[in-house]
């Protein structure tokens, strides 16, 4: 019960800070925001020249930032390896229950 109250108070404090921050952020959807800079402009304007495909999101994930996608495929591989390893290692007899033998 105490844990629940402490957690709730902590969340409320964090929430106050985050919401106060939200009110000071760049306005939602404003074309003059700092994110709409030369970075996104190049993706939108030169994608045909650079990559020769019309889907900009695909161009970003498989060409401009393909290394991230390699990392992401690696995350998937790590997840499947972990799941298979954990489930296989604990599957049948030979399981110990105590660390001290």
């Amino acid at each position: 019960m105490i844990r629940r109250i402490v957690a709730t108070i902590m969340i409320l404090l964090l929430g106050t800070v985050l919401l106060y921050m939200t009110s000071e952020m760049p306005r939602f959807g404003d074309p003059a925001n700092p994110t709409n800079n030369e970075l996104s402009a190049r993706y939108m304007e030169d994608v045909i020249e650079d990559v020769n495909i019309p889907n900009i999101v695909t161009a970003i994930i498989t060409d401009y930032r393909a290394y991230d996608t390699l990392g992401e495929a690696t995350v998937l591989f790590a997840a499947i390896a972990s799941v298979l390893a954990v489930l296989a290692m604990h599957s049948d007899s030979g399981r110990g229950t105590k660390l001290d033998e």
């Binding site: 939602f28 959807g29 074309p31 996104s40 993706y43 019309p54 900009i56 991230d68 992401e72």
Partner: peptide, 30 residues
């Protein structure tokens, strides 16, 4: 990444329309 009045970032030949910022969408796929 949203921009007022922007559409999905897929280029259509011969049209100049305002897109939303494609980078956050691409990263969130990851």
């Amino acid at each position: 990444g949203y921009v007022d009045g922007g559409s999905a970032p897929i280029v259509i030949e011969g049209q100049t329309i305002r897109f939303i910022n494609p980078l956050p969408s691409a990263l969130i796929l990851t």
